[in-house]
């Protein structure tokens, strides 16, 4: 028989997701993968919010999570738009080649 899943488990999951996202940002060099890592960080936040909301028996956490999802979508949309504009001029999505400005 497995132990029941508690709020603490979700918080640990969220911390792991945050860590995975940050490692992705630091090690990956493809802009698309960087954007995916950002989504993972924001989803870590969502797991956190919903776990707290459930623990506290409130709806606020879920509402907050929905707002985070909306904002993540807006950010991804603008990010891909900017990436397309860059790709038209430079034909690359590789961070090491995007080096006109000193990083």
């Amino acid at each position: 028989m497995l132990a029941p899943i508690t709020t603490a488990h979700y918080l640990v999951l969220s911390a792991i997701l945050l860590l995975v996202g940050v490692i992705g940002i630091l090690t990956r060099r493809n802009v698309i993968v960087l954007m995916m890592s950002i989504e993972i960080i924001l989803n870590a936040v969502n797991v956190n919010l919903i776990a707290f909301g459930r623990n506290l028996d409130q709806l606020e956490g879920q509402v907050f999570a929905i707002f985070v999802i909306c904002v993540a979508v807006a950010e991804a949309a603008v990010g891909l738009g900017i990436l397309i504009a860059l790709f038209r001029n430079r034909e690359t999505v590789h961070v090491d080649e995007i080096d006109l400005l000193k990083w």
């Binding site: 945050l18 940002i25 960087l34 950002i38 960080i41 985070v68 900017i82 504009a85 430079r90």
Partner: peptide, 24 residues
């Protein structure tokens, strides 16, 4: 283009951290 992309990537990461702090 490049400035916007760098600002967006780093800005989104910082937002992620900020809202993680908010969730805690």
């Amino acid at each position: 283009n490049e400035a916007a992309l760098k600002y967006l990537i780093l800005g989104s990461v910082s937002t992620g951290f900020l809202v993680y702090g908010f969730s805690v």
